[in-house]
Simulated scan of single mutants.
Amino acid sequence: MSESPDYPRYPDKPESPASAGPVAAPARPGTIEGAFWAFVASTVLGLVGGILLFVNRDALVDTLRNADRQRGGTLTGAQIDQAATITLVVSVVIVVLIAALYLLFAFKLRAGRNWARIVLTVLTALHVISLLTAQDTILGYLAALAAVVGVVLSFTGPSNAYIAASRSR
């Protein structure tokens, strides 16, 4: 008697489709590849922006000096320089950590993980909101644009089908 799709599948029965071995990974669509590379571009732009903080060190020192003067001018020049250095180092460490996590999520999206797509969408939304509430550099705007492109690509029809197929594996 041949087995029809309505009958239960028994893994230990040799002719059962369930015993055929692991299911092949679905083909990754171009939209997922495009989303992945858009998130990588966004990450690179963010890293470059973080590194460029060092170029703007003098502007940071001037800002700290002006803020100190408005509060009464209690800090010495060495203290202001030290505060600027600490601020820059902490900022770069944070940028690198965020970039590493962003890349991890991009690779997980590429592997078909829906949770990574959701996390990247939330992070992109927060990035765009931060652009609306604060000034940023042109690199910040370009990074946000690349991330938005990545989110849009990750929610297209082929991307949805790929993630659904990856989930069922």
Score class of each variant (00 low, 15 high):
Thr85Ala: 10
Thr85Gly: 05
Ala111Leu: 00
Thr124Cys: 06
Leu139His: 00
Thr76Asp: 00
Leu109Val: 11
Leu123Ile: 10
Ala134Val: 09
Leu97His: 06
Val122Leu: 10
Ala99Leu: 01
Leu97Ser: 14
Ala78Thr: 15
Ala100Tyr: 00
Arg110Asn: 04
Ala106Arg: 03
Leu75Lys: 10
Leu101Gln: 08
Ile98Glu: 03
Leu139Tyr: 10
Tyr102Arg: 12
Leu123Gln: 02
Ala125Pro: 01
Gly140Lys: 05
Ile80Lys: 06
Leu109Tyr: 00
Ala83Pro: 05
Tyr102Met: 11
Val122Asn: 05
Gly73Arg: 05
Leu142Asn: 00
Leu120Asp: 12
Gln79His: 02
Leu101Glu: 03
Val89Trp: 03
Arg110Cys: 03
Val93Gln: 05
Gln82Lys: 14
Thr137Ile: 06
Val90Gln: 04
Asn114Thr: 14
Arg110Phe: 12
Gly112Pro: 06
Thr121Arg: 06
Ile129His: 07
Leu139Gln: 01
Leu103Asn: 01
Thr87Val: 06
Phe107Ser: 11
Ala134Leu: 08
Thr137Met: 05
Phe107Gly: 06
Ala125Arg: 04
Leu123Met: 09
Val93Phe: 11
Ile80Tyr: 01
Ile118Cys: 09
Thr121Gly: 11
Trp115Asp: 13
Ala125Ser: 05
Ala84Tyr: 08
Arg110Met: 05
Ile98Asn: 09
Val96Gln: 06
Val89Tyr: 01
Gln82Ser: 15
Ile86Asp: 10
Ala100Ser: 07
Ile80Ser: 01
Ala84Arg: 09
Ile118Asn: 08
Arg71Asp: 14
Gly77Trp: 14
Asp136Ile: 02
Ile86Gly: 07
Arg110Asp: 00
Gly112Phe: 00
Leu132Ala: 08
Phe107Tyr: 11
Arg71Tyr: 10
Ile86His: 08
Leu126Lys: 14
Val119Tyr: 02
